[in-house]
Simulated assay, not measured.
Amino acid sequence: MKKLSIGMILGGALLAFNAFAQSATPVGLWKNIDDVSGKPKAMIRITESDGVLQGKIEKLYREPTEDPNPKCDKCDGNNKDKPIIGMTILRGLKADGASYDGGTIIDPHNGATYKCKMTLVDNGKKLDVRGYIGFSLLGRTQTWIREE
């Protein structure tokens, strides 16, 4: 009986640690909230490979009168006229202390690419994503909400 109780306690502790470890990174599905309207814009899945993060748009929130599968007509290069759903918009972010930095983010609305910095907040439930030109002070921040 005693061994079973200790095993259950250790098992529960490992599960709790695993849940905390998973939420301590930006890896997962995030709802992008428009910093002007406050409405959801997209769902972005952030993945990690060899310590480098990338993020891809999985879903767009669109009005019924809007094109459900718009293309990035303002993007340059490989993204020119490609569907926004499925587009990799975050690239090259690496852990830098409590933040993730050194990468870029594409704004499919205007086709521009910005430097990007991300910071987990609210115990990993939210992600502050900052796009900027040159210095981090010259930019804007959106808060994304963790979905899973």
Rank of each mutant, 00 (worst) to 15 (best):
G131Q: 08
D76A: 07
D73M: 06
T104G: 03
C116K: 02
R130S: 05
K41C: 05
D50L: 11
G77F: 03
G12K: 07
V52H: 04
M118P: 12
D96A: 08
Y61C: 03
D101H: 05
G124I: 09
N78T: 13
K125W: 03
G124L: 05
I145C: 00
K126G: 06
N79C: 01
G111C: 11
K74M: 07
P70M: 04
I57W: 00
I85G: 00
R146F: 02
S136C: 09
M8N: 06
G134H: 03
T25G: 01
I145F: 00
P68C: 02
A98C: 04
G92A: 07
K115F: 05
I85S: 00
G102R: 05
K126R: 09
I9K: 01
G86L: 08
L14A: 11
R140T: 13
G55E: 12
G11Q: 12
S23L: 10
L53G: 06
G124A: 02
I44V: 15
W144I: 10
I89H: 02
W144P: 08
G38F: 11
D67V: 14
L15P: 04
I46R: 02
D35W: 09
L137E: 03
Q142S: 09
R130Q: 08
G97C: 09
L14F: 08
D96I: 06
F20V: 15
M87E: 14
L60C: 05
G102A: 04
E66S: 08
K31Q: 15
A112S: 11
M1I: 14
A24D: 14
T143H: 02
K71C: 06
I84R: 03
Y100E: 06
I145P: 00
P26G: 00
P68A: 01
D128V: 10
D34I: 12
D73E: 14
D76C: 01
M118D: 07
A13H: 07
T119A: 02
L60A: 03
S37T: 15
S5W: 12
A98H: 09
V27C: 00
L53K: 07
L60P: 14
S136N: 06
I84N: 07
I9R: 03
L14E: 07
T88W: 01
D107I: 11
G111K: 09
T65N: 11
K74E: 13
N79V: 09
Y114P: 10
G139M: 10
I133E: 04
V27K: 06
V121D: 06
E48D: 13
L120R: 01
G77D: 12
P40R: 05
Q142K: 04
N110Q: 08
